[in-house]
Nucleic acid binder design. Structure first.
Lengths: 193, 193
DNA sequence: AGACAAAAGCAAATAATTTGCGTTTATGAT
DNA sequence: ATCATAAACGCAAATTATTTGCTTTTGTCT
């Protein structure tokens, strides 16, 4: 991610970065992806195109940079009082957000960039959310599956279907979550002990 | 995929298509991705750039088109005489091929295209391979998990890790396969009845 | 406050993309 | 077989995007 490291954190640089990011997001609400070019973004942001070219290299890197920022979770998973329910609620929302048109576009932007660090970051965002749920469950004394297992059993299938096929429906997400929870104790997702 | 449907199947069109595809593949062995532009491809293919623009639209669609073709399986999964072993052998090879640099580039190309049909096709290639393994197992009278479950439990985690994190190692693939096989009968992957 | 260098602006040069139009050539009907 | 038709291609001009050299602005560190 060109705009994150090794650059001046304050003042004009930060202002330009914010302005360009804002321009991209604004344009995405009014135009189609194919119409959004760097000169267009530059005009919207009140910046000269060469600034964008020098900082981000090409439009894919810029779009990926914006997408990563937008994919960063803005709140922590709801606390239902039980780990299995937390995970289900989180997974349902995750599936819905990522299946939406903007969601799918953001994922595509992240994956299309040469710089693979964006994808890695997004994966970490997800992991952190699950770790949060797992940590709360453990604090309550509940058993909870390993985070990597949740990634394999819940997150991966959701993402794969969104990327390669049709978005998973609610029933499918429920099945995935209860399957993952059964790694701990059979049939314990729905009913609190 | 622009080049697959609604165009003349024979003669010059087919020749141009083959020539352009060949040019892309040849260039990918000698250049980096960022250096491959449509004018460069056109020169290599002995074709005028506007032909490529009119047929594929932009370079992402073209690269996706080529990638889908290269991702099409060229042989059927090895037959070890037992479904679980077949699946393991297939999954190991799949993971290795897709984790390689050319493999990851092809996947990225497919996913980066606007036209989502390429991703769908790739998913179907994979499904068909697994269906083949499943069909053979059933012909032998073995139990074998549902293809969709194999997609969720084996293929998805492999692909997710390749796209978003680090490639899965052999031990992990083994664990995924035996987990999927346990959907049928516990601990029956290795040993023939 | 001043020196330094990073980042931005500007404009000219280069490269990619689009487009209009004439030519070639698959395809389907006679 | 030949012909009519339209799809696909080639070519070149026009447009648009990208790169690059140089100057100016402005954070940052002393």
């Amino acid at each position: 991610m060109a705009s994150r490291e090794g650059l001046r954190p304050g003042g004009r640089s930060a202002r330009v970065q914010a302005s360009v990011h804002g321009a991209v997001q604004a344009l995405m609400t009014r135009m189609e992806r194919g119409e959004i070019t760097i000169p267009v973004i530059a005009t919207e942001a009140g910046v000269t195109p060469s600034t964008i070219y020098r900082r981000w290299g090409d439009i894919q890197e810029l779009l990926a940079d914006v997408a990563v920022e937008r994919l960063k979770p803005d709140m922590e998973p709801v606390d239902t009082g039980e780990g299995g329910k937390d995970l289900l609620a989180w997974a349902e929302q995750y599936a819905e957000e990522m299946s939406s048109t903007p969601g799918r576009e953001m994922i595509r932007d992240v994956l299309a960039a040469q710089d693979g660090s964006g994808a890695y970051q997004c994966c970490n965002f997800t992991k952190q959310q699950i770790e949060l749920i797992a940590g709360r469950a453990k604090d309550r004394g509940e058993a909870f599956p390993d985070v990597d297992d949740v990634m394999d059993r819940v997150v991966s299938p959701i993402m794969y279907r969104i990327l390669f096929g049709e978005a998973p429906d609610a029933a499918h997400v429920t099945r995935l979550v209860s399957g993952a929870m059964q790694l701990i104790s059979p049939a314990s997702v729905g009913e609190p002990t």
